[in-house]
């Protein structure tokens, strides 16, 4: 797979480390009343869709930026690539 890095252009996927579902950016607040339940869902449960999937890739052997890649899970086609920091304060 080739990931079209927004700043660096097309880069081979093997330069990246895969973390998983982009919902991992939405870390629950540990002060919430039901924080335990929220962290359980955040940490362990996944939608695991079979078509479009927003996911976090880390450009470890590049500029060390976090990217949100939207990919078709059934064909490996990459639909969009964005810098994760764009979303960091807004949530995904």
């Amino acid at each position: 797979m080739v990931i079209n890095h927004p700043l660096l252009g097309p880069r081979d996927a093997s330069e990246f480390v895969y973390l998983g579902d982009a919902s991992l950016m939405d870390r629950p607040n540990w002060l919430d009343k039901d924080a335990g339940q929220k962290f359980y869902k955040y940490q362990y449960l996944r939608d695991n869709p079979h078509l479009e999937h927003k996911e976090l890739w880390f450009h470890e052997q590049g500029d060390r930026s976090w990217l949100i890649v939207t990919r078709n899970i059934s064909t490996h086609e990459i639909l969009t690539v964005e810098l994760a920091k764009k979303f960091f304060d807004k949530g995904v």
């Binding site: 998983g20 579902d21 939608d47 695991n48």
Partner: peptide, 18 residues
């Protein structure tokens, strides 16, 4: 392999990635 797809039909989210 397709557990999440099948169980999503029952509205169940699993601790699984494919």
């Amino acid at each position: 392999g397709s557990s999440s797809r099948v169980m999503s039909l029952a509205g169940i989210k699993l601790p699984i990635e494919s």
